[in-house]
Design a protein around this nucleic acid. Structure first.
Lengths: 132, 132
DNA sequence: CCTTGACCTTCCCATCATGGGAAGCCCCAT
DNA sequence: ATGGGGCTTCCCATGATGGGAAGGTCAAGG
């Protein structure tokens, strides 16, 4: 039950490029190799790759994922640690959302006041130019 | 009424590093120089720098800002072009917000189901591991 | 007049996660 | 044995930003 990097990529949704990168940066341990140097992945490796993929989909950074992986592998972990990490990340996401929200609202307000026709007068440019 | 790059940075809120970078990449035209090679900025340059700063604060990319600057300088522009750019960017922001929202909600749901005490059982890790 | 310290110049490097591509080796099927 | 596809490593690029080194410049004060 061992596959090459291409099959691992297809099975996990992580590109072969990224799998090598994760190995290079230490997020994942070095993969086993065939005699000719090909990387080889077993069931546990695929499991870890899918874990990483899922965590990336939830917006965790590689550093956070390293922590999550360590907790995942530690059967003695306290769930409080995981929850803490997750909630800290949620705080991060919420903060970014608030920033983007503020930008979007500002622009929507400006755009609403811009007639958007062939004339050059434009409250959006006026605002950017500081003439607000 | 001409200032050096440091003063321009302070006056515009754009770091000296970034001012040089904007010049290097062509977002802003080459600055005038003193005989000894120092960059020199006049009132119009400061105005443009503040424009760029403000646009960055609203989340526009450098490519979009290049377009906005061109429209700003073009007195024959159609406000529709500006509005189009702005609304396209709003669409971008809204899409990113939706993605982050989805991540945050997923994580909040998982965290809510995690008791977060000293025990190892953790729905968050279970979900990441695909045991959801 | 010379020193000092603050400022400027260019150049290189790092971030973070990701992709592109080249040169060369390997494996399998025809 | 040949061809095609997959693997290896290595280098480069992204976008916007900061850090820092090595060296030139300027203004103020001794």
């Amino acid at each position: 039950m061992s596959v090459t990097i291409g099959e691992a990529a297809r099975a996990s949704g992580v590109s072969a490029k990224m799998i090598r990168y994760y190995e290079e940066t230490g997020l994942l341990g070095p993969a086993e190799r065939t005699a000719s140097g090909y990387r080889v992945y077993g069931a546990a490796d695929l499991h870890a790759l899918r874990f990483v993929r899922r965590a990336r989909d939830l917006g965790f950074s590689m550093a956070e994922i390293a922590d999550l992986l360590a907790l995942w592998r530690d059967r003695e972990r306290a769930s409080a640690s995981v929850k803490g990490l997750a909630l800290a990340h949620v705080g991060d996401l919420r903060r970014r959302i608030r920033e983007l929200e503020a930008m979007a609202r500002t622009l929507e307000n400006l755009a609403e006041r811009c007639c958007g026709d062939g004339r050059p007068d434009c409250p959006i440019l006026d605002d950017l130019a500081g003439k607000g």
